[in-house]
Amino acid sequence: MRSDKNSHAPFALKVAAAAGLLFMHLPILLIFVYAFTTEDKSYQWPPPGLTLKWFGVTWNRPDVWESLALSVKVASISTLVAMILGTLCAAAVSRSQFFGRETISLLVILPIALPGIITGIALRSAFNLADIPFSMWTIVLGHATFCVVVVYNNAVARFRRTSRSLIEASMDLGANGFQTFRHVILPNLATALLAGGMLAFALSFDEVIVTTFTAGQQATLPIWMLEELVRPRQRPVTNVVAMVVVLVTFLPILLAYYLTRDGDQVAGQGK
């Protein structure tokens, strides 16, 4: 839908849209202010004073570093698994028509369409039934399951835009299947895969609902934050961690946006 170039939005619409955007952004910006507050016993506003002290305190907290390391490890492995599974699935779905094709797409979307608590409790009871002890790997198993969909969405969109004649031309010129994949398909797919991987990483890095069910004693960064939310012990440290988490998740999102902005959409719907 396009209106004339010289048409202007009604004033009320401008105000409503601006208010909506402010509603989305102000609470996140508030976190940034709280990271510098001198108050450490309550959530007092306005902050009585500003300080950089809490950054140093947070830096010296081993538990924060441990959960951060675990989160990065889990997110990296899950992203890798999701990239492999998602690409395979996208290649299969986009290269041929076969019986059950729709079911495959549904299967990929299901872990994210169902509420996280269902995925979480299902995996937990399955681990219990199979006597699998909870570890980093059980967390990875859950995360990879719902990360597949973002890689898949990005890869499918790119496959759809990649012309089949390119692959045929490569074959005609004497390349075998592996060479075609390495020199023709992969370079075409690379940015889409990278974008999907970034989003998968962000998704896994932030996930808490499934993780509460599939983690044993290990705390990922979101689990650490959840404990602080339920029973605040170190408010200033939590403020700093929250701010860092916002900054860290913004980077992959921005990168993913720039990698896919021409043409297909970033698979953003459905977290």
Binding site: H25, P27, I28, L30, I31, P222, M225, A242, V246, T249
Partner: peptide, 18 residues
């Protein structure tokens, strides 16, 4: 996109502050 993808817990935490 940025608020949509930013951390769920951080968003909840922001409202605890608010």
């Amino acid at each position: 996109m940025l608020p949509l993808w930013s951390s769920y817990l951080v968003k909840v935490y922001a409202w605890k502050l608010i």
